[in-house]
Structure formats: C-alpha cells, structure tokens
Write a protein that binds this DNA or RNA. Structure first.
Lengths: 245, 245
DNA sequence: TATATTGATTTTGTCGGACAATATTGTAGA
DNA sequence: TCTACAATATTGTCCGACAAAATCAATATA
C-alpha cells in the first residue's frame, strides 16, 4: 500500500468519530441544543436559518437533518408554524431507521413476524414483571372487559393492556418494535378494508392472560397469547377470503 | 368557515394523493423510473442532476428524496461512485419507516429482540424450505466451515448462511427485520468496542443447524439456534464485563 | 513487467441567495 | 362577536457555484 494511501486511511479512522456519516455532526449538535434548551414534545424549534447560523453551517445541512428527523417521525414541519418536536429527543439516544417493505399480500406476513415477538414479550413479562406492574396489568384487563361489555370501542383499552405487558418485559425495544409493526399492519389493513375491529373474539381470553402473568406462569401465559394470535390470524384469513369471493 | 377557506380545504383534500408529504411525488416517480429501467440491487442510479432534469424538478428535491431513501437504508451514496440501490424497490411496495430508539445500554436488549425472531425464522425454514433451498443452506454451511478453518474472515459467509435461512422462511419480512436489527446492533457495537468478531464459538454448530433444517426437524433446529444465541449473548456479556473492569 | 504515483474526471456534499407557497396572526369592518 | 382580508414569518423549491472525494487512466519508477 502506498504511503499516501496509508496516511489517508489513518486520518480517516481518526475522523470517523465526527465525520462518519454526513450530517451526524449537525444532528448531534441539534440534539444537544434541544436538551440544553429543555425543549419537550410540542415545543417549537428555532427557524432553520437561525439554527444554521448558530451551528455555523449552511441551511441545506440543517434542512437535511431536520428532514431526516421528520421522516423518522421525531418532528413535524409546517410553513409558518415552524418545526415542532413530536417525540422526546435526548443526546444519548440513537434513532435507527428500519424500513418494512410491504406489499398487498403482506398482511399475514406482518402478523407472522409479530407472533414470536408478542409471545416472547408475554414470556418476559411473566418472568420480570414487578408486583406493581402485575397489578396494573390486572387492572387494565378488568378495564378492557368493562369497556367491551358496555359495547363501546375497546381498541384503545386493548392497546393500553398490551402496552403494559410490553412495558413489563423490562426491555423497551419490544414495545417499540411491536407497536410499529402493529402500526404498519393497520396501515395496510385500513386502506382496503376500512375500520379494523379485529380480535373481538380474543377479548374473553385477556383476563386469563393477565392472571397468568400476575402469577408468573410463563407457560400458561405464552399459551394463551398463542391462542389469541391464532384467533386473530384466522379472522384475517376469513376477511381476506370474503374479499376474494 | 369562509368560502375561500372551504375551497382551500377541498383542493387540499384533492391534492392529498400526490402532495401529501412533500416529495412523495418525486419518490413515486423515481420508483417508477427504477422499475421501468429494471434496476436491481447494486445497480447505479443516474446522477442527481440528470434525475432532476428528467423529472423536471430541482436538484434539491431529488436530493431530499434520495437522502430519505438513504436514511431508510434503501440506497447507498458515495461521491463519484454515485447512488446505488441497496434494496429492491418497486412502485407497488410501501416502505414504512420504523425507528428504534437505542440507548447506550441497548446492546443486550437488541439481542433480546433478535432472539425470538431468529428462532421463529429457523422454525419456519425447517418447515417451509424447498429441497433446493435446503441444498443451498447445506452448501452455505460447508462454505462457512471452509472459510473458518482457513482462518479467514468468516463474517460474510456467516451472513450469507443466515440470509439463506431467513429466505427459506417464505416470508421476506423476517430477513428484513432481522438484518436491520443486526445492522443496528453492529452500529452500537462497533463504535465502542472496535472490530466485531462475535460468535466465533458458534461456528461449529452451524453444520448441525443446516442439517436439522434440511431434514425438517423443527425442534432440533430451534434448539441449536437457541444455543447459538446463548453463546453470542454470553460473549457480549463478557466483552462488556471486560470493559467495565 | 509490475507497482506506485500522479493527475483528470465525475459525482455527491455544501453553501448562499433568491423567490414561491402557505399557515398563522393581526386588523378592520359588518 | 364574528367574518373577511392583509401582513408576516417560516418552510419549500430552485439555481449556480465551488469543495471534497472516489474512481479511473496515464505516467513514472523499481
């Protein structure tokens, strides 16, 4: 290898920290700025021009960083209204974009990916939940039953229940991943089929699930969760059959 | 509401299709262009300026679209080398961005999420693999062993092996998700710890895994995969311990 | 001949300035 | 008090220019 090439490599390795991928520097500086100013969800950022001046970079660079955040759903941008925070931003966190490529026939595939994650989440919840969390899970299940029996829209309550379970795993990634997959699922489901009210049949199973987690019975909990997922899958299949007919 | 405001709203609703979020139009046009030109993974796109001319928009707009794709991992961009496709792009697919928020201590958490996905992938592969796919998996395992015994860098071969398994599930979402999580894992791993050569100890187990899948033994296959994941996890733990000491 | 160096070229990256589009805000009038 | 209109701030888009870097080709050197 030539001397110059060696020098090049060395210097590149040294620069990796700050230069590694384009506007990372700007993003980090912005995160820090936000943290310092104690901006929370809903707060407005300074205009692009001002940020650019403050960070001593061009407006284009700031724009790219902000657009990247917009694509990740961390901020919303509007003319005149400016850029507003849509999620908590801390300088210690890395946001990693993952893209799911969804085609029309992806409904069942999405569900197939969700399955192992949900089951593992339930298992971990049964293993790791604190007594406090177990109580909350039981309460959420009771709440869900009340809403359901009253004939009201139970989806929000259902979501709260499962959120609590995922929260009890002790690993926030489960909640993040599952909910985003769920969101993707709804996105392709709503388009052709309208309002999703999937999973009605599974609701009577929920109190049992809560109970199994509360008494730390991993095997019973995963078994119930598995049944729930089976029912949902069956429902999806029948809806799709109905559509093709 | 004023008449003008009403008109405004109506026209906005009509425009929603194409204008909804900024450069969606450009992105769609680009997808179509790529599909027409039959560009696949690894192929190079025309330079920004040319794309801009062809789509009759400014270079800035094209750049934003391409950068959005870059952030989603769909393309790679380099000076002089140009923009290359890193994933299949078709106009019929939706790319849904999912962002994982990773904190410093996320290494093990990332692994914990990967675990159920990998195990389920292996199970499905054992169930669904065609004879042809089984043969390829066996071949990849043999290849991996050769490379490893020769003392060379086995990571690429390892990746090919696991890709083939995920491919054999019949559900492309598994491959997408697992590999992106893996990418995230490496991103936080490489930064503090340097070269990642994790999983060396698991290589001797790989031929057995290939064999189990080939003979459709789901339970043996998931068992071996589980062991492999355990070993990797232990390795991560020990590396982290070494660092804290 | 083979290898290393140098230089040319192409493409993305960054900047600055200008104007367009538009949502918000304020203001005047019914 | 509400409605319609105008002013204004901010993002969105375009253009032109140059910087930076990676690749490729030609040249020099061992």
């Amino acid at each position: 290898m030539s001397i110059q090439a060696q020098i090049k490599q060395t210097s590149r390795a040294l620069d990796l920290l700050e230069a590694s991928d384009g506007n990372r520097g700007v993003i980090e500086a912005l995160s820090l700025m936000i943290e310092r100013a104690k901006l929370g969800v809903g707060d407005q950022l300074p205009p692009e021009i001002e940020i650019a001046r403050k960070l001593n970079v061009g407006r284009a660079k700031v724009r790219e960083a902000l657009i990247a955040w917009q694509n990740m759903g961390l901020v919303t941008r509007n003319k005149k209204a400016g850029t507003r925070l849509a999620a908590e931003i801390s300088s210690s966190a890395i946001h990693i974009p993952v893209t799911l490529k969804l085609e029309a026939e992806s409904l069942l595939r999405t569900h197939a990916v969700r399955r192992p994650l949900e089951i593992e989440a339930v298992r971990l919840a049964a293993r790791n939940a604190t007594d406090q969390q177990a109580r909350v899970i039981r309460a959420r299940a009771a709440e869900l039953m009340t809403v359901h029996e009253a004939g009201e829209d139970w989806r929000a309550a259902d979501k709260r229940f499962h959120s609590e379970i995922q929260n009890a795993t002790g690993n926030p990634l489960f909640e993040q991943l599952i909910q985003q997959i769920q969101r993707a699922f709804n996105e392709i489901y709503e388009a052709p089929f309208g309002q999703p009210h999937l999973g009605q049949a599974t609701i009577p199973l929920h109190p049992g699930l809560a109970e199994a987690i509360a008494v730390r019975d991993e095997s019973a909990a995963t078994k119930i969760m598995s049944t729930i997922l089976d029912l949902v899958e069956e429902e999806v299949r029948s809806v799709m059959r109905g559509l093709h007919a």
